[in-house]
């Protein structure tokens, strides 16, 4: 039945990927442009990277963003794991419907609504706005994305592994630590990274809940971009793309090697019977 792909399907794939990647490729090319224009080539130069790395505004905002992202990812992974575990393993409990709703709504809620609402809460609580408020706002939606990833993995886990651990005398908390968490490890790593990038990427919510002195990287980028195109931003984009690509490719290679090893082992083992 698998006769290969229909030419129309292949054409659609090519078109789709060209659409997804053309802007990124162009962004990268023009980050090395000598001139200030990002659409007319005027010679190769890495000077915009130098400009970028000397821009104190961008550097301090990037540092702020990284701190927020790391904190957000760590807390969101724990909360998202707990939430996913409750939804995946506890069966019916009081308030489940409300909980499910609160765990899924942030996935699609428009940022402007979430941002405004969260800000009003902080104003109501007379909470000093700054890094902490941005982090809290980010955790709130990040944990829901974490939960989606963890739940997908959790539902594919054989529940009898946890039952076997308990049957062998491990208390629930110990079972969770010794069996559930190691089994979920790849999903937890992926979830942490996703939460990290979601936070690093957010402009709208951060703009609402930020206070003086808590300018994040997207806020700086946004203000620069509104004033007009700047090759400095191209350089920044290129660095982000390279970093992410590197991470993903390395992760994929490790995963692929493990998978290949596992397959080879399994084939060897089956010959033993």
């Amino acid at each position: 039945m698998r006769k290969g792909l229909h030419p129309v399907t292949i054409a659609m794939l090519l078109f789709g990927f060209a659409f997804l990647y053309a802007p990124i490729v162009i962004l990268i090319i023009f980050s090395f442009n000598e001139g200030k224009l990002v659409s007319v080539w005027s010679g190769f130069s890495p000077k915009w990277y130098g400009e970028l790395l000397r821009d104190p505004q961008i550097l301090s905002a990037a540092w702020m963003s990284l701190k927020i992202a790391a904190m957000n990812a760590s807390v969101a992974t724990v909360l998202g794991l707990f939430g996913a575990y409750a939804l995946g393993r506890f069966g019916a409990f009081k308030g489940r419907t409300l909980f499910t709703g609160m765990m899924t709504a942030p996935l699609v809620m428009p940022d402007v609504i979430t941002g405004l609402a969260t800000l009003l809460l902080f104003v109501g609580l007379a909470w000093q706005r700054g890094m902490s408020t941005i982090t809290i706002a980010h955790i709130t939606f990040s944990m829901c994305f974490v939960a989606v990833i963890v739940r997908a993995r959790l539902s594919s886990l054989d529940q009898s592994l946890e039952e076997a651990a308990m049957d062998l005398g491990a208390r629930p908390a110990k079972t969770f630590l010794l069996i559930t968490i190691p089994m979920l490890a790849p999903a937890l790593v992926a979830a942490w990274l996703l939460a990290f990038t979601l936070s690093l990427d957010d402009l709208v919510i951060a703009s609402f809940v930020a206070g003086p002195g808590s300018t994040t990287l997207p806020m700086v980028v946004f203000s620069k971009v509104r004033l007009g195109v700047s090759p400095e931003i191209n350089a920044l984009g290129t660095l982000i793309v390279l970093l992410v690509t590197l991470c993903i490719v390395v992760a994929a290679l490790i995963f692929q090697r493990q998978e290949a090893q596992r397959l080879a082992d399994a084939q060897m083992a089956d010959r033993a019977d």
Partner: peptide, 16 residues
């Protein structure tokens, strides 16, 4: 289950 003097062999074996 973790306090019963009973052990079980699971259908899927449930090996960690």
């Amino acid at each position: 289950p973790y306090e019963r003097p009973v052990n079980m062999m699971f259908q899927s074996y449930a090996l960690f």
